[in-house]
Design a protein around this nucleic acid. Sequence first.
DNA 1: TCTCTTTTGTATCGTTCAATACAGAAAGAC
DNA 2: GTCTTTCTGTATTGAACGATACAAAAGAGA
Lengths: 208, 208
Amino acid sequence: MSQKGRPRSFDRDAALRQAMRVFWKKGYDGASLSDLTVAMGINSPSLYAAFGSKEALFREAVDLYGATEGFEIWGAFERPGSARDAIADFLRASARAFSEPGDPKGCLIVLGALNVSETNVEVFRDLSERRMSSARDLAGRLKQAVAAGELPETVDCDAIAAFFLAVQQGMSVQARDGASREALLAVADGAMAAWGALTAGSERSVEA
Amino acid sequence: MSQKGRPRSFDRDAALRQAMRVFWKKGYDGASLSDLTVAMGINSPSLYAAFGSKEALFREAVDLYGATEGFEIWGAFERPGSARDAIADFLRASARAFSEPGDPKGCLIVLGALNVSETNVEVFRDLSERRMSSARDLAGRLKQAVAAGELPETVDCDAIAAFFLAVQQGMSVQARDGASREALLAVADGAMAAWGALTAGSERSVEA
DNA sequence: TCTCTTTTGTATCGTTCAATACAGAAAGAC
DNA sequence: GTCTTTCTGTATTGAACGATACAAAAGAGA
C-alpha cells in the first residue's frame, strides 16, 4: 500500500500552489526553474521527480488554476438563473478575481503564454484551446437560453460569446496595467450595457 | 556633411521594419538576438552599432509600429465626425489590422510584453504607458463630445473608454488564437451595441 | 540488521542568451 | 598614397537557461 522508498519531504500540493502563483505572475517563459524551485522550497531534482518537467508542472498549475480561480469566475454558469445573469456574474467575478489583493493580476490562462516560441508551442496551444473552449461554453449557455425561449432565435450566439469573452480578456490586460477593481467592474457593467441591443431579436441596434 | 568611415552596408529602415515584425510576432522576450539578426540580414555587432541594444531596438520598433499600424487604427480620432463613428471606426480598423493576411496577428503594444521579468521591466512599463495613454486619448475624445453637447454631461467618459479599449485588447488575444477577420469585426459590432445604453444620460441601462 | 527503493542535496551538463573584442575592409580627408 | 574613421564578419565572452548524474540519506519489508 504505502510507498517503499524514502518519503517525500515536502507537500506536493502546497508546492504546486506556489508554482501556480509563479506562473501566474511571470508567465510560462518568464518563470525560470530557479524562480520555481525557490518559491516551492525544493531543489530542481525534486521538482523533476515529482512533476516531470517544467511543461508538465505548468499544465498541473493551469489545471489547479482552473479548479480554483476558474471556479470562482465560471461558477455562475453552473448555477440556475437567466443567461443574462450568468454573463453579468461571470464578468463581475472576473473583475474581482483579476484584482484580488495579494494575488497576481489578471488571468493565468490569458496571460500565461501569448507569444509562440520554439520552447512553448505546446503550452501556447494548450492555453489557446482552453480560451476557445471558454468561448464554446459561453456560446453554449446562450444557445441553451435560445432553446428555452429566453432569447430570440435570431441572435448570433457565437458572436455574442466572442464579444463578452473579448471584454473579459481585455480586463486581464488592464489588470496587468494596474487597473483598480472599481475600474474593472465598470468595464464589466459597460459590457452588459450591450445586452439589450445584442439580444433584441432581428431589430436594429439601439441608436444614439 | 557625409559620413567619414566605411558606409553602412544595409538599409537601416528596412532592417528596423524586419525587427518590428519579429517583435510583433514573438514578443520582446521571445525574440532572440539570433531571430532578429537573421530577419534583419545583419550580424549582431552591426545591430548594436546601429541601434544600441535589444531594448533600444524594441523601442524604435514600437515607435514604427505606432506610426504605421497605429495610424491605421487610431486615424479615426484625427478625422472629423461624431465620437460614435470614431469609436466604431477604431474598433473595426483594429479588427482588420489584427487579422491582416501576411502580418502577425494582434497588436504589438498589447502582446509585446505582458509579463514582467528582471530583463524587461522597462519594456513592460513603456508598453503599459502606451496602453494607458490610449485610454486617455479615447476618454479625451468622449469628453470632447460631451463639451460639444454631442453626449450628455452624465456619461462616465473614463469608464466608457476603458470598456471599448478592453474590447480592442481582447481582440488581440482572440487574433492570436486564430480568430477570423469576420469574427473580430463581429466583436467590434457587438461592442457598439452598448453605445446607446452607455450614452443615454442618467437613465438605467436597457433591460433584456 | 540487512536489503531494496525512492528522495535528497550538490554539483554539474550542454545550450542558448545578450552583448563584445578584435582584426580586416571600405570609404572620406589630406 | 596615406591617415583616419567607421563598419563588417568571426569568434567569443560570462551568465542564465532547463534538465541530470551521482552518492548520501531515509524510510519499508525481510
